[in-house]
Amino acid sequence: MDEGFVINDPISGRYRLGPEAFAVGLAAEPSFELQRLASPLLRRLALETGDTVLFSVLHGHEAICLSRDEGDFPIRNQLIKAGDRWLLGVGAGACAILAALSDDEIRDVLVRNAEVRMSRYPRCTDDAVWDLVTQTRSVGYCLQPGLVVEGSWAVGAPVFDENNRPVAAISIAAIELRLGTARSVQIGNRLVQASHELTALQVASAAPAHSDVEDATALAAGHTD
């Protein structure tokens, strides 16, 4: 009830689903298939890196974390868990999605979430977010250097649909010492590769049955340009 997933009718005493349950349903409906496609890839990334791998989907002006896969590194980043909602521009995955939008869309998002963003994440200023957007567009991934919580770093890359629109993000979260300069580049490039793989699967699954899978893969590969 505190989170708005159920509502109690004070007259009848009965419970019914609340607005948050509706919002989650809207977010999940188009995302179940994408998460299913992503699951083996996310697990593989966790095994490869030893770190925490997160998968988030775009919903309105937020990114909702749908899954969390743990690697075997003993010190884990506990900042994000499945079900968490993040403002676009806050966190590596949500910022990677934001960077894939147009400048006009980004300005609109930043205006809409400015009050909440500045009250909860004061270091995520407009200028700081725009800097991350510029860097993300340059290298293909977002390195979030502890702006949300000091010492908590993350790297994220966007996933696109068949219309070249961002729909999700894959990110890896770790402590600052775990994501040094050289390793963050390595992780970032690996996430970009994983994003292209998942984008290709997404495009192929959305294509008509008679379409050639190679065509879908070639379309997704266009994101490397």
Rank of each mutant, 00 (worst) to 15 (best):
A23R: 11
A23K: 09
V24H: 15
G25S: 15
L26M: 14
A27G: 06
A28R: 11
A28S: 08
A28P: 09
A28Y: 13
E29H: 14
P30A: 05
F32D: 09
F32V: 15
R36A: 13
L37P: 03
L37D: 10
A38E: 08
S39Y: 15
P40R: 09
L41S: 03
L45N: 02
L45Y: 14
L45F: 09
A46K: 08
A46Y: 12
G50Y: 04
G50R: 01
T52N: 14
V53G: 00
F55D: 02
F55K: 01
F55M: 01
S56F: 10
V57A: 05
V57C: 01
L58S: 03
H59V: 03
H59I: 09
G60C: 05
E62Y: 11
I64F: 09
I64P: 05
I64K: 10
C65L: 15
S67K: 09
S67L: 07
R68D: 00
D69P: 06
E70N: 12
G71V: 06
D72M: 13
D72T: 12
F73K: 15
F73G: 11
F73N: 10
F73R: 15
P74G: 06
I75D: 03
N77A: 08
N77Y: 14
Q78V: 14
L79W: 12
L79C: 01
I80A: 08
I80H: 10
K81Y: 14
K81V: 12
A82H: 09
G83H: 09
D84L: 08
D84P: 10
D84H: 15
R85V: 03
W86N: 07
W86Y: 05
W86M: 09
W86A: 04
L87V: 03
L87C: 02
L87T: 10
L87S: 02
L88D: 05
G89P: 02
G89Q: 00
V90W: 04
G91A: 04
A92W: 13
A92M: 03
A92P: 01
G93I: 00
G93N: 06
C95Y: 05
A96W: 03
I97S: 04
I97D: 01
L98M: 06
A99I: 00
A100L: 02
A100S: 03
L101C: 06
L101S: 01
S102K: 04
S102Y: 05
D103V: 02
D104W: 03
D104I: 05
D104P: 07
D104H: 11
E105H: 05
E105C: 07
E105Y: 01
I106Y: 08
I106E: 06
I106R: 10
I106G: 03
R107P: 06
R107K: 09
D108F: 13
D108E: 15
L110V: 02
L110T: 02
V111N: 13
V111T: 13
R112N: 03
R112V: 10
N113F: 06
N113T: 15
N113M: 04
A114V: 08
E115C: 05
V116D: 04
V116T: 13
S119N: 11
S119E: 12
Y121A: 00
Y121K: 04
P122T: 04
R123D: 09
C124T: 05
C124S: 10
C124P: 07
T125I: 03
D126L: 06
D126P: 07
D127I: 11
A128K: 02
V129R: 03
V129Q: 01
W130D: 00
R137N: 05
R137S: 00
S138H: 14
